[in-house]
Design a protein around this nucleic acid. Structure first.
Lengths: 107, 107
DNA sequence: TCAATAGTTCACTATTACTGAACTATTGAA
DNA sequence: TTCAATAGTTCAGTAATAGTGAACTATTGA
């Protein structure tokens, strides 16, 4: 009871609109970029390069990314580890992630 | 006075977040796709394949696309003609438009 | 001059995002 | 064990944003 359960949509339920909406927020774009650069899992606070932000806001951003199918979250001890679902996104929308993330610096 | 003036950001002010946010709405994605397929200018009601929608909502969608730098609107008689700013978007974010629009069917 | 058409603007409501506070879960130490 | 610390979620309230009908502007054409 009260046990946290994460919602991860199956690959086929990932929508373009959902992915774009998730990445349309600069903070979330930075989180995904940060996760991709490190390749390995990262905790929420690690992945979010924005110290001033409220914990609840951060938590909400990760939920949005999760429900859009962009990241996979799993529990590891006291923290939650996140990875980008590269294979799923690339299968569904080839090159989309690479194209968007490759531009995330100058935009 | 009361004369409608359109806001068109210069190329360098077009942001990735703005473009993604604009395209994250399914209706707006369809509008852009519709505009691109026809190549020539289209009026707002022509470009929007959604008869049930309120005029004010439609007008707002075009405003969002315009302010994101995705479309250029000009007055032609009683109607407003719209074109996708392909050159500007492609200069700013190469292949982004093609990548996203190419997936807009199955997502 | 009047009606029709195309779209915008306004004011209102409905939905969504941000936040602090309270809560759950896990670890590690006394 | 118990207690404090850490990581993150959930909740409730407010702030910001989107959708809508109604009123408005502008243009055409009879």
């Amino acid at each position: 009871m009260g046990m946290v359960q994460f919602v991860h949509p199956p690959r086929e339920d990932i929508t373009l609109a959902g992915v774009l909406a998730a990445l349309a927020d600069p903070m979330r774009l930075r989180i995904v970029k940060s996760l991709l650069e490190r390749k390995d899992c990262m905790s929420c606070t690690e992945a979010a390069p924005c110290p001033g932000m409220a914990k609840s806001t951060l938590s909400n951003h990760f939920r949005v990314l999760r429900e859009a199918g962009l990241i996979q979250t799993s529990k590891k001890g006291v923290e939650h580890r996140n990875v980008v679902r590269e294979a799923d996104i690339n299968a569904r929308f080839p090159k989309l992630l690479k194209t968007i993330l490759g531009m995330a610096d100058e935009g």
